[in-house]
Amino acid sequence: MSLFVDILSWACILGGGFFTIIGAVGTLRFPDFWSRLHAVSVSDSAGMLLFILGMCLQAGLTLVTLKLVLIGIFLFITGPTATHAVANAALVTGLRPPIANDIEPEVEGGA
């Protein structure tokens, strides 16, 4: 039983690390601010949750797991909130995503 829990937590930690790195690489490679929003939220949500789950499995039903769950819930709520706040502030102060009419449409009147 404990071997299975170890393997599961090992997989969660590896998955969390994978998603965190994917999010970070995405934040570097994406062309503009608006697409980077997506990349950051990948590492904020998936990476974070997998790490917290992996650590919870490793700790079993103790006080440590309670603290981890509290951290997980808090980050789960504030991650998207912060990302929304950044997007709202950027949009209001004039940072506009490059929408279709910036790129000359191939077909006249294209969407």
């Binding site: 999010g23 970070a24 934040t27 590492s43 790490f51 990302t83 950044v86 502030a89």
Partner: peptide, 14 residues
């Protein structure tokens, strides 16, 4: 930069 700081903070928590 604000986005990177926020993500850096979350990664530091982990």
């Amino acid at each position: 930069r604000v986005l990177a700081t926020n993500s850096f903070g979350t990664t530091t928590v982990l």
